[in-house]
């Protein structure tokens, strides 16, 4: 049924994924995909400040339902993004991920290469929460309870 050939790097990341799992009370969560199409990616991030006061990704973890390419791209984005500033991390593209994996089969370029989108969503989520925190600290406390309740 399948005629898809993966690069050695994809197979390596697929069989030994890095940063798999979840972060307890994450600062941001990004989720993309659709199980009907065969994949869902979830990215958790923890944000901290570096010495020069810039916000960086202190920790990043993924969970993925999907094919070898979906798992490999998830693992790769966490490695590319970890330790980077939020601005730098946001600039990581789908192509960057594919290139770091020594290429993806053409058929997988769009459907399984959404890890960078998931990361952007997680950063967006973090910024939204931060903004809320500034305006009404009480609401944030309540919303984080909701998130944890999920």
């Amino acid at each position: 049924m399948s005629t898809i050939t993966y690069s050695k790097k994809v197979l390596k990341e697929f069989t030994n994924p890095k940063n798999m799992g979840e972060i307890k009370s994450p600062d941001g969560v990004g989720k993309v995909g659709n199980p009907a199409c065969g994949y869902i990616m979830q990215i958790h991030i923890k944000v901290d400040k570096n010495k020069s006061g810039k916000e960086i990704l202190k920790d990043i973890k993924f969970k993925t339902f999907g094919c070898a390419a979906a798992i490999a791209t998830s693992s790769m984005i966490t490695q590319l993004a970890k330790g980077k500033t939020l601005d730098e991390a946001e600039k990581i593209t789908r192509n960057d991920v594919a290139e770091s994996l020594e290429g993806l089969p053409p058929v997988k370029m769009h459907c399984s290469n959404l890890a960078s989108d998931a990361l952007k969503k997680a950063i967006e989520d973090y910024r939204k929460k931060k903004k809320l925190k500034k305006i009404i600290p009480a609401v944030t406390a309540a919303s984080s309870v909701v998130v944890m309740g999920k």
Binding site: M1, S2, C67, A68, A69, I71, S112
Partner: peptide, 21 residues
């Protein structure tokens, strides 16, 4: 596809009905 992919790391070759494959 990922189930089949992991089985293949043990040398076991199977097939899937998944969209991904």
């Amino acid at each position: 596809e990922s189930i089949g992919g992991y089985l293949e790391t043990f040398g076991i070759c199977t097939s899937t009905g998944s969209a991904c494959a």
